[in-house]
Design a protein around this nucleic acid. Structure first.
Length: 425
RNA sequence: GCGGCUAUGGUGUAACGGUUAACACUACAGAUUGUGGUUCUGUCAAUUCGGGUUCGAUUCCCGGUAGCCGCCCCA
């Protein structure tokens, strides 16, 4: 390359390229998540990232839509938004077929989300998120299952209860506390919640100053003298108690957590990393009983949670829990001369035929020595040369590149040999 | 949207107001034409972009862009 490149190889601002080794790690984590969710009977669904803009606007707060999503007009004059979150899509899909679906639904989806924001730590313009929802059941056992499921996902990676903490609160409790302290107007309540959301970043004095002279709803939660507050608080404490009895030791009542979404109506919760380097919420969720009815019809209760890939990978890295995944081919089949390629390809085909065996044939004109170098560089564990000699004798010399040992065996048992070796290690 | 810091080959670093911008790794080629890793030799490859100061700028100044960090926001 000489001179200046006319075209940048950088990815677009705030999005990532995943080269095979990186994608292998991420997709291994996704597989793990899929396995756990499937084992609980949750079914995967998928939808396009393109949505009509109204889907997000109908929840209010137009500023967010305008400033913080990728929105544009298509050639037919339709306003389009790249989905910033999955829940409205889920609600739309559920509402669209509510007469034919078998409730309760246990659904999940793993896919990309887009937010037009300034990229910074843990926040990108495109990220992958797993959304898990249980639709059609009112508060009760469904709430317990969803929290248990979130816990199980993290535990399945090998995390212990010390690695993370589940913080639980209730929107119903917060609402009752606000009413009890005289926050009657919706706007005032929302302002207070936003303030509460930031409380962790503020000093107590700053918080008191920002709150003004009114009585703090958190005090009402603490005292629980108001009957309505007491009912909600007892209900929440009971849930936490039950979850502890079911083996979740790292769950706490945290009256300050709010979660950002407006549509939450009941329990809200988040999972936080306990390591000091990674103080962000890794997973968030809650009950949203009103969302589906925005599409008409009776309210349909639902509860769910979501977690992003960035936080998850940070968590797994800091706690050394990254699952191993090998996308790497098992075997490099070298060819002494280009004329050997057809025979080698035919042999490779027989190796692939019955299993997921990952192998390919050298198509370059490099010498066998260079082909081996190539295989080493690609971190491929096995190498064999396939040429006229092997085609005639039906025997190959299988080379284990890590140790340098070479085994002369019948070409029919190569796969078996490699699998046996892998099981031993 | 606001603020701070940063920007040198593909990667990680170095240096300087003045001739060929250094080193390591990587890549590529060869020593080595049916069996690698070591070693040796060689080659390719960079001062983010625009403007200013200056005899001269990669270096100093301003702006753009990008990255990181913080704020706002997090629906």
């Amino acid at each position: 390359m000489s001179g200046k490149p006319s075209l940048s190889t950088d990815s677009y601002k705030g999005v990532r390229d995943f080269y095979p080794s990186e994608w292998a790690r991420l997709s291994a984590a996704f597989s793990q998540v899929r396995d756990v969710l499937s084992s609980w009977g949750y079914e995967e669904y998928q939808a396009s990232p393109l949505e009509r803009s109204e889907l997000y606007e109908s929840k209010g707060n137009e500023e967010i839509i305008r400033d913080q999503t990728y929105s544009f007009e298509d050639r037919g004059g339709r306003r389009v938004t790249l989905r910033p979150e999955m829940t409205p899509t889920l609600a739309r899909m559920v509402a669209g077929k509510r007469r034919e679906l078998a409730f309760p639904l246990r659904w999940f989806s793993i896919g990309n989300r887009f937010r037009y924001e300034r990229p910074q730590k843990g926040r990108l313009r495109e990220f992958f998120q797993t959304d898990v929802d249980l639709v059609g059941l009112p508060e009760g056992e469904a709430d317990l299952e969803i929290v248990q499921l979130a816990y199980s996902v993290f535990r399945s990676f090998g995390a212990t209860d010390k690695d993370f903490i589940i913080r639980v609160n209730s929107r119903a409790l917060l609402s009752a506390a606000c009413r009890a302290t005289g926050y009657t107007d919706e706007e005032g309540v929302r302002e207070y919640w936003q303030l509460l959301d930031r409380k962790a970043k503020m000093s107590p004095e700053e918080f008191a100053l920002a709150r003004g002279s009114r009585r703090d709803p958190l005090t009402a939660v603490e005292e629980a003298t108001d009957p309505e507050v007491k009912v909600e608080k007892d209900k929440l404490l009971k849930i936490i108690e039950t979850l502890k009895l079911r083996g979740i030791s790292n769950i706490v009542f945290e009256p300050e957590i709010v979660r950002g979404f407006d549509y939450y109506t009941g329990i809200v919760f988040e999972i936080q990393d306990t390591s000091p380097e990674n103080p962000r919420a890794l997973l968030g969720g809650g009950r949203y009983d009103g969302l589906v009815s925005m599409f008409g019809g009776d309210p349909l209760p639902a509860i769910g949670f979501a977690f992003g890939d960035v936080g998850l990978m940070d968590f797994l890295t800091t706690h050394k829990l990254l699952p191993e995944n090998e996308n790497t081919p098992h075997l490099f089949i070298g060819t002494p001369t280009p004329a050997d390629i057809p025979a080698a390809q035919a042999y490779a085909a027989t190796l692939r035929e019955k299993t997921q065996f990952r192998t390919f044939v050298n198509l370059t004109e490099k010498s066998l020595g260079d082909q081996i170098k190539d295989a080493v560089k690609r971190k491929i564990p096995y190498f064999l040369a396939y040429g006229s000699e092997e085609a005639a004798t039906k025997a190959v010399r299988l080379k284990e590149l890590l140790t340098g040992t070479e085994t002369g065996i019948s070409q029919d048992i190569v796969m078996q040999h490699i699998y046996t070796k892998e099981q031993e290690s």
